[in-house]
Design a protein around this nucleic acid. Structure first.
Lengths: 343, 343
DNA sequence: CAGCAAGTTTTAAACGATTAAATCCGAAGT
DNA sequence: ACTTCGGATTTAATCGTTTAAAACTTGCTG
């Protein structure tokens, strides 16, 4: 494989000159510049990134940790991150932990070994993992994506989870629902708690007491949505509306609803967090909180790039992005023929 | 940041010994081993991957080129690749070109600069790109994923595209459809042609002539599915069945079908290539060719790993994986009340 | 024409690991 | 006691870049 030394010999200059030409790091006479570039182009030389990074101590690479690659919400975020980074001249490596804390830590270390310049983290644990707390002295800045850890330093970009579920549930209340079920994520997770809080706030404002039997804890997976939805709908007094804390679980609910022969929205209204592309195509189309995945990703990347170029300094920032409710058929107001569902 | 030299000083040995302990590359007395490991663990030392790769000339990293990250079919493939590589001790970097040939080439070069040990390629171009042909002399082995290039050396793992669409269309014919439309991918692409061929073969076997007006060319995007579906259904004599060459375009078709107020499967049956997870949840559930994404990815990674460990040598191999048709409601046989749709 | 400044180009020392080859050291053989 | 042998350890070169600092040009000035 081609090295800078060979280029130097062929262009009859020193390696330093080649390097200077390639990096525009010093004045080089036009004559030599051309001689060098000619050889570089003819031989299609590309500098060894490993050697370069080793020497400069910057890899121009960012690591991103993702809890799941198959959840359709995440790729959108990745695109946001990638687009910004690419334009800023950084590469992205993503690691996918599948909600496994050990794999997550493995990836974190891989990233450190590869000397990434910064990290975008969407991680699983409920409590700040030890390695993050230790990261303290390290050089790579962190950005948390839709997560927040107070005791490990790093910027954060968050969707307004409380406001999102608040809007969703208020919408249901406005449509005369009073028995509103919720399927949340694991109860220790920051995000689950935020989304639950919005639910509670809306109920409270509507003068409705929280019924513990209507609060189910899922794990974000489609299957857990399915199971919890069945449990809820098979109650003696099933809820007339359901708020589901993420898109994948909402898909599971749909399956349960269809299997049980329950009609949506007539028998049970459905609102989901995360507006998946397919929600608009489904029958009924699903009302959902539009979680701005692309913006979330791109903002996180922007903050990281700013930190790296020292445009941004000082204590960790956290930024909250607004979310919107997309009202669709699954939560449409039903013309009141009879008050409840089946007797 | 910690270096091997510091570890060596603290453990009172030479850097060579530390390296030997860490890599088990020579006999080291238990006493020194323990002394070294103690320091390594206490300080949580992780060797610099850049330096290591530079010296050993192997990065234990694989690059993967993807045409789209938001198409839900691709993440499944990535998981297959990643799982196998991780177990074999390799890291994966994925690049997402968004069907843009220039970005694709950029990524290819980034990968070369990072000295990846091998490449998994799902690339866009219709004709073998120049840089691939030049790759010839380079050291990193290639595996094509669901692509095939005869004039650039590399193994290939392919789904049986011809057989898949053949099965799909035969199924439609068996359900008494004779006017069967198809939406293909860009006509120069290898995969589009294969899927078109299966369609033609099934028609021919069923004694049906290919009607050019029923063959539409899409670009794999949801939107192009939508547009082409409208065109087909707004014909004077619309087809009674539709075979769509990928999942995203099928979603577009669904939207068109629903907007036009056409019933599926009563007025038009639908079969898609790529069995997306959500297809089972939709109403009607979509009949689809189950393209084995995970297997495709894991097989590709396996071949690559074998090449790298020299378990596999010799001329490029190409392997074809069988595909299955999942019959669901969208292509259900309709009880013949009247012969055609609306008069 | 020596001296100097400014601009080009080269020299050579890093960066942090790996690894042949050299050295050390103690036990065994004669 | 003196080799000799072999395993444990270290020395030092190397991977392919970047980049201070040195060295070399030129052209100008007094």
């Amino acid at each position: 494989m081609l090295t800078i030394k060979q280029i130097a010999v062929l262009a009859d200059v020193s390696t330093a000159t080649v390097s200077h030409v390639l990096n525009k790091s010093a004045n080089v006479s036009p004559k030599l510049q051309q001689r060098v570039m000619k050889v570089v182009r003819e031989l299609n030389y590309h500098p060894n990134h490993l050697a370069r990074s080793l020497r400069t101590r910057r890899s121009r690479t960012i690591g991103m940790l993702l809890p799941s690659i198959t959840n359709p919400f995440f790729p959108t975020i990745v695109r946001g991150v990638e687009d910004v980074l690419r334009r800023a001249g950084y590469n992205l490596i993503v690691g996918n932990s599948d909600y496994d804390e050990q794999r997550e830590e493995e990836y974190y270390h891989t990233f450190c070994e590869k000397r990434v310049d910064g990290l975008v983290l969407m991680i699983t644990p409920t409590t700040t993992p030890e390695y993050l707390r230790r990261h303290n002295g390290e050089s790579a800045p962190l950005v948390y994506l839709d997560r927040l850890y107070h005791d490990a330093p790093g910027d954060a970009v968050l969707a307004d989870n409380v406001q999102g579920s608040y809007k969703a549930v208020r919408h249901l209340i406005e449509n005369d629902h009073r028995a509103i079920g919720i399927i949340t994520g694991p109860s220790q997770m920051f995000m689950s708690r935020r989304r639950l809080r919005g639910y509670k706030r809306a109920l409270q404002e509507g003068g409705i007491a929280v019924d513990k039997r209507l609060v189910r804890v899922g794990d974000w997976s489609q299957d857990s949505g399915y199971r919890n939805c069945r449990t809820l709908l098979e109650h003696a007094n099933p809820p007339t509306a359901l708020f589901v804390s993420n898109g994948l679980m909402a898909l599971g609910c749909l399956r349960a609803i269809s299997e049980l022969g329950v009609r949506c929205p007539e028998d049970v209204a459905l609102v989901s967090f995360d507006d998946l592309e397919m929600f608009e195509l489904m029958k009924p189309a699903i009302t959902a909180v539009d979680n701005p995945g692309y913006r979330l990703g791109s903002r996180a990347a922007e903050m990281l790039v700013q930190r790296l170029s020292n445009e941004l300094a000082g204590p960790p920032l956290s930024e909250i992005l607004p979310v919107e409710l997309k009202v669709r058929a699954s939560s449409a107001r039903v013309v009141p023929t009879s008050t409840g569902p089946e007797p």
